[in-house]
């Protein structure tokens, strides 16, 4: 791998390889000494144009556990907010000798530009761009699904296996969700069946060609017995209640009634089904406390798996010889 820009760029073999590598990384994280010397002397820059403390510290932990030097470059309070261009920022990072740039940006495609515009030689790792992609989130989600639904006594992480035959429901604001896009790509690459559940206003025009089903009714999908349910974060400002004509839904209350995961729907899910959420959650909006705190919720575990998956990706991008463009 030279960059990780989109989950759609990962083929089946590569995806399984990343998850398997993450499984080895996860094992090292239960040891007393968690730090590995693997990326000593490498510099990883966390370039965050958009606030996301959770994602940043996950990448920071992953890089530090591999002994890389980490530089946090936050757009807040930096020259970026004074109008420095993405290009000049890239040239600065190039001059600083960054080996990898982990970039979070509000503009879809900004990581593509960093990787391909010729400004920067570093490996570019997309940590979420606009409403486009968030590939490490999809990887940690697939890792979590595989561990719970494909793990065995011999291979608790399901090493070597994919997600063939599993049914995953992704529920909520698909239109604005890079998590949904990334997960549709990766889950289907790994053989899972995906159903997107959203009100029609929150399904993008063009999604009809995606390799998944689309439903407007959460109850029907719950009763179809999915193996995992992924709840997406909903931005309250998109949910009406003063938003005017451009709101995507009449009111938060109606959203919760139609698309929220509550105790009633939770109880109807199959025994083995797991509940996921990329965080941060809006308790009481897309997910009720009953669902979020139930034993089926693997939301906290997703966070831990995030570090292992990001270690795996950093390892695969940075440890070996640099692949030529």
């Amino acid at each position: 791998m030279r960059h990780l820009l989109s989950a759609a760029d990962l083929d089946h073999t590569t995806a399984v390889h990343i998850l398997d590598t993450a499984a080895e990384m996860a094992k090292t994280q239960s040891r007393e000494i968690k730090k590995l010397p693997t990326l000593r002397g490498r510099t990883v820059v966390n370039l965050f144009f958009e606030d996301s403390t959770r994602t940043r510290i996950s990448f920071e932990a992953a890089a530090k556990r591999l002994s890389a030097d980490v530089i946090n470059f936050s757009a807040k309070g930096s020259s970026v907010s004074k109008g420095e261009s993405l290009k000049d920022t890239a040239l600065t990072l190039q001059a600083m000798g960054a080996d990898a740039v982990v970039v979070r940006h509000q503009a879809s495609g900004a990581p593509h530009r960093l990787a391909n515009a010729g400004w920067l030689e570093a490996a570019v790792l997309n940590a979420g761009d606009g409403t486009h992609q968030h590939p490490t989130q999809a990887l940690l989600d697939s890792f979590t699904v595989r561990r719970h639904l494909r793990g065995t006594d011999v291979e608790p992480d399901g090493v070597g296996s994919d997600l063939a035959g599993l049914h995953v429901a992704i529920v909520g604001d698909v239109l604005h969700s890079r998590v949904a896009r990334s997960n549709v790509d990766l889950l289907t690459t790994l053989g899972a069946r995906v159903t997107l559940v959203a009100p029609p206003t929150l399904v993008p025009v063009g999604a009809e060609t995606w390799p998944c089903e689309v439903s407007y009714h959460l109850d029907e999908v719950v009763d179809a017995g999915p193996d995992a349910v992924m709840m997406l974060r909903v931005q309250r400002e998109r949910m009406g209640g003063g938003g005017g004509a451009t709101s995507f839904f009449p009111s938060p209350l109606e959203y919760t009634r139609q698309y929220g995961l509550d105790a009633r729907r939770l109880a109807r899910l199959p025994e083995h089904a797991i509940v996921m959420h990329p965080g941060p959650m809006n308790r009481g909006l897309e997910i009720s406390a009953d669902a979020a705190d139930s034993p089926r919720a693997v939301i906290v575990e997703q966070v831990a798996n995030g570090v292992a998956v990001r270690m795996a990706v950093l390892y695969l991008l940075l440890a070996g010889e640099r692949e030529k463009a």
Binding site: H17, T21, A319, E321
Partner: peptide, 15 residues
Amino acid sequence: MYRDDLRRHPTRTIG
């Protein structure tokens, strides 16, 4: 992950 020659080779698979 403890090798000193990782950068001299294509990425090795972790065993």
